[in-house]
Design a protein around this nucleic acid. Structure first.
Lengths: 337, 337
DNA sequence: CCTTTTTACGCAAACGTTTGCGTAGTTTCG
DNA sequence: CGAAACTACGCAAACGTTTGCGTAAAAAGG
């Protein structure tokens, strides 16, 4: 079913058909021709060939189909993370309200692969949101390929990008401070240690308070319950004078809780524990998890808004938005020794 | 940067350039021309215009960009569900291995909206996977628009679709049986009650074992921890002789655990609890959750495989695959009275 | 050295649209 | 009633590719 088919059947020219189906205002078609065309089009379920449209119209308006992409910078074997599920979901909801649909939202795409970029550019999204951790070169590379990009995540970017972040460094530092103010000084770290702002904050907090970092109570752990469980287990095997853990996020903390309890320690009496993210589950585990609240929903909403606003040309200067966080006190932290 | 630009710069014709960049075997170009073309192309970062390719090649091979869509039949305000996160993730991983990328994976799209369908068809995916709950008409509607569709979820489809399911009815029935064999007869239900196979299985199990369904111990609950918490709370307010709960899935069960413990009951001594899905978290809560294991990873892998196989024409008859499940005994179920 | 094959490349059509321009026929208006 | 304006539509070019066919020049074969 092409314009030509319709034109032949209706006994008119292709241009007429095109003008009618496009509802083009200039030189509107005659009422009766219009009706005939429409009925034929509908009968045969005509749907315009977007390739042809895109081709013909160059980089014109029809280039867009009101869609954005979420590019999620994570490895294919990274564990599920409710944080990103929630972030993506709120982006999608907000985008939908503005009439945008999101593609690739959950894809474990390789952001460095030209083939991937090609696939994304091919689908002609109007803009892309980069989520998670993303190094500078990749970001620059993406910016070259997509005109409109916005970043959202826990890492403040020091370059001029649109970004909606909750400063992970500050959050982690404050989490440490939360424990420290309760009197803890021997604080373990469970989480990513490579290139991770939360870990840097941990190290710096220690240094700022003249506490020696002890590798026996620091462990590299995957961002999953299993990772937290194993990580806490490893640390607890090596030492028995630890009084608190800082976990890189809540699911890690939930895993850690189990390991701690299995070793016979009580939470928070013997060992305190703080997480990050404040996912829904945090209040349903026992003990309820004290954690740093991150406004995930707000981040997603803003991310969608800013990206769409940029697409629409609403702003041209980079918007660097930093969202507030706060500790939420539940049951997993007690006073230090 | 088009073929024409390259051709002009190299002083050859467009066809020559096209043949060279396509590595077309027939009438291979001369070594030196080839090199010149490639160097120019690379220098300018030439990337073929897919619209033009698709247009020219009709419905030939290049129509596709090796992508599939995951259409997730859920409402925009449905809570996050780790089950689907995991399902989608495994679909993506498996698809990626076959060179396919997935679009729309997490989108809360309105499957009934023609505009949405249009957006998806426009991006010319090669096939779509329908996830979750999806009524017959919608399914039929989707099948009309996308030639290649496969369903995955907990609901067996009684029509001729490619489908990879784990029979939710059977799983739920067996979960009930698990409790029943332990001696429980007063079993509550927490979860969706509308149009839900798990609830049907619950009712039927009761009927089959001549147990009267009691609305006081049945509650409609959202598929989230909060839903489970509130649901269990409601039931516990109304009755005090309940000995077991069947929860529609694990996160609901995790919420229920908290409510039960708060009311002063011990699990499993006073009240037993069984979930469904066997998500990672199930083994990290306390007590560890007894649940029905669903091979989510396998479902995802098969879903991708079957869909891609169909796209490639590997099979034409509908493949109805039912994956096995089994109970995993942990700590949340004890003997009945 | 002449014929045949091969190599290397150009020509032009086609894919389905959109749109500026042109032109009959119709209406408006002074 | 004649000029101007408008209506309703057709013509054809253009978007960037791919590919069958054609054809010079070079290589091979006798």
């Amino acid at each position: 079913m092409t314009l030509k088919d319709i034109a032949r059947e209706a006994g008119v020219s292709v241009s007429t058909v095109s003008r009618i189906v496009n509802g083009n205002s200039t030189s509107a078609a005659g009422k009766e021709t219009r009706d005939k065309i429409w009925s034929i089009a509908r009968a045969h379920g005509y749907v315009p060939n977007t390739s042809a449209q895109a081709l013909r119209c160059g980089d014109a308006k029809r280039q867009t189909d009101n869609s954005i992409a979420c590019l999620f910078a994570r490895s294919a074997d990274a564990p599920d993370d409710p944080f990103f599920s929630a972030l993506i979901r709120s982006i999608e909801q907000a985008a939908l309200k503005e009439g945008f649909i999101v593609k690739y939202s959950f894809s474990a795409v390789d952001l460095h692969s030209p083939a991937t970029i090609r696939q994304v550019t091919d689908s002609r999204v109007d803009g892309v949101a980069i989520l998670g951790r993303c190094d500078k070169e990749t970001l620059k590379f993406l910016k070259q390929h997509f005109k409109k990009v916005v970043y959202s995540g826990l890492n403040m970017l020091h370059a001029d990008y649109d970004q909606i972040v909750c400063d992970g460094y500050a959050v982690a530092y404050d989490a440490m401070n939360y424990l420290w103010e309760k009197g803890h000084t021997r604080i373990g770290y469970i989480g990513d240690t490579k290139n991770e702002v939360r870990y840097q904050a941990y190290r710096n907090f220690l240094k700022d308070h003249r506490i020696l970092a002890d590798n026996r109570i620091i462990t590299q752990a995957a961002a999953s319950s299993a990772g937290g469980y194993e990580g806490a287990g490893r640390i607890l095997e090596r030492t028995d004078d630890i009084t608190a853990f800082f976990c890189m996020n809540d699911i890690t903390a939930i895993g850690a809780i189990k390991a701690i309890q299995e070793k016979g320690y009580r939470i928070p009496e013997d060992i305190s524990l703080i997480g990050m993210d404040d996912i829904e589950l945090a209040q349903f585990v026992s003990p309820m998890l004290t954690t740093m609240h991150i406004p995930i929903g707000e981040m997603g909403k803003m991310t969608a808004k800013i990206l769409i606003d940029r697409i629409r040309g609403g702003h041209t200067l980079p918007m660097k938005i930093s969202l507030p966080y706060y500790p939420v006190t539940r049951e997993s932290c007690g006073p230090g020794p």
